[in-house]
Amino acid sequence: MTEQLIPLVQVDDLHKEFRQGNIATLALQGISLQIQRGDFVAITGPSGCGKSTLLNVLGLLDSFDSGSYQLSGIDTSTLTVDQRSKIRNKHIGFVFQSFNLIDSMTVFDNVALPLLHRGCGKAEVAEKVEHALSAVDMAHRSAFYPNQLSGGQQQRIAIARALVGSPDLLLVDEPTGNLDSKNGDAVMQMLQKLHQQGTTIVMVTHDHRYSRCASRQIQLLDGQIIASGQKLEVA
């Protein structure tokens, strides 16, 4: 009951700066947002506005300079590298534009990775991987290697890997960026289906066609939220 009351993501006044020599780039400037369980949030904005940086911070792949970020009520500002890994394993699933599958592993092994790092038994792993691959309609390709698959198929495998551990939050970074429109549409339909099944999704995209699929949109510019709301109509 308490879990239902606590927002899944609670971000307050988040700042992040990249520095190279004397040149500093403000990637995030005072971002504050809440994401509830079951939300499908699309983060949009022009190139370099901080979309991916925000997503990386939400996914504990990157740190922030100031502000606070609580995931399921856990304060993430003081976590060690290994604690972050553990939280990612338990709470977060990630889908990237470039898929990030391990070429030397089969589809099955790629999808099984989060479960194996969690220490699941062989039978449990087999059952869950089978289920995840069936969900993305790729069960028949479990013995293949990623480089034997098309871009669309690889992205579906990446989604299966992100889902296999039943995470609280699915973070999706430009999922259609490397795909043609047909495969892109298929991936988006899959994400919508997952949302309908109750998965919380945060997606970064610059494609307005796909951002409209989300239940809520956040628009960024120069590291700041300039608009936020249900089904934003962007000019």
């Binding site: 290994d82 890994s85 553990k86 990612r88 394993n89 391990i102 790092h117």
Partner: peptide, 16 residues
């Protein structure tokens, strides 16, 4: 390095 990053992304600790 990308492979190792994926391992860590999916929950692998540094020691592991």
């Amino acid at each position: 390095s990308q492979e190792f990053a994926v391992q860590m992304l999916t929950g692998c600790s540094v020691f592991r």
